[in-house]
Write a protein that binds this DNA or RNA. Structure first.
Lengths: 190, 190
DNA sequence: ACCATAACTGTCCGATCGGTCAGCTATGAC
DNA sequence: GTCATAGCTGACCGATCGGACAGTTATGGT
């Protein structure tokens, strides 16, 4: 049987992934056609489908590292609790967002269909657990909303084109996230 | 000449807008076909294009109120400065996000093509000014990043399906946003 | 020289999209 | 009755999509 398996690495293959990542991140997955990618790469559309079994296979290969990173964070956070969980979740999540900024942009552009993509593992459950960790395992409305906001804040701020060096952005996002999650420093205490 | 103008209100017209808003918000604009809308409404695809000049015209009618609301906030924030600007921006932005949760979901699902949609006015400039207000007119990295994060936080938390009553969600989002933007309360306050 | 295989492409295909158009039906004015 | 008009529809159109496939060229082992 001549099953078209994933072809081994080659010069063109790398160029395809590179161009596809760029196009997906800037224009979205659905809005980017195989023709667009082929034009950017400088090869034929059929050549793309020689190196990859489908358009989705290209996306999968691009998203897999990010999905694995998220899964690893999930595992790492599982045994932690309370403030420890929240802080580890913040740092881990921010680092993840920084490392996969372009991949996040792809997800961001096609949320509805993308969050269910197999390459990202079971997003719903993973995200739910990440939220739980960010909230320090608390179910109080205040903490749940704050966790949800940190999730969105880092997600969007990481994908945005803020004119700030990466290292600085990372540190500020961590600080701001912890500020968001920490109890109010007002007169009342709990 | 017989220019097909926007038809006046009618029962079916209302149902179309209602169904379209629901479908766009849950599945995204691009991913929702006229056939999908027609099926949901229970009429023919051609009937949609009798009441609306195009698919885009449906979207425009759905997004226009949100665009006007954003423009109004823009005007309201213009004369304010510093902490006053930041707090007014937070409250105004959160209220806007709450009022147009479903519309935001539409934008969220098709960011690349949607942020440039005429119905939302000149998004880039408006968002930039909103960010400036959120940062309290500061250009310090810390404040700029925090503002960007609040923007994303409210945007996503508002569009998410958190199981929290609207009023409570609004108040918590405002509190958390102010926490994010507020200067660090010294090394340790607790 | 021969040939198997890899790398690549031109061309075609079915599906689906947004949109057009001629025509059907119901209603109300005269 | 007659006629204009509003509301609505089935059938069709061109464009574009992802993908299939036969065929061409380049390469390296024997």
């Amino acid at each position: 049987m001549v099953v078209p398996m994933a072809r081994p690495a080659s010069a063109l293959r790398g160029h395809i992934l590179e161009s596809a990542l760029h196009l997906f991140a800037s224009g979205g997955y659905e809005a980017t056609s195989l023709h667009d990618i082929a034009t950017a790469v400088g090869c034929s559309k059929a050549s793309l489908l020689y190196h990859f079994t489908s358009k989705d296979a290209i996306l999968t290969e691009l998203l897999t590292p990010a999905g694995e990173g998220l899964a690893a964070l999930d595992t790492q956070l599982a045994p932690l609790d309370g403030r420890e969980a929240a802080e580890a979740a913040v740092i881990g999540y921010v680092d993840l967002a920084m490392r996969f900024r372009r991949e996040i942009k792809i997800l961001f552009a096609d949320i509805p269909g993308m969050t269910a993509h197999p390459a990202m593992g079971s997003i719903p459950g993973t995200v739910e657990r990440l939220l739980d960790a960010l909230a320090g395992r608390s179910t109080r409305t205040r903490d749940v909303v704050a966790a949800q906001m940190v999730l969105g804040a880092v997600f969007l701020a990481g994908a945005s084109d803020v004119d700030v060096p990466a290292q600085e952005l990372r540190d500020e996002m961590i600080r701001a996230s912890l500020r968001t999650l920490r109890p109010d420093p007002g007169p009342e205490r709990d």
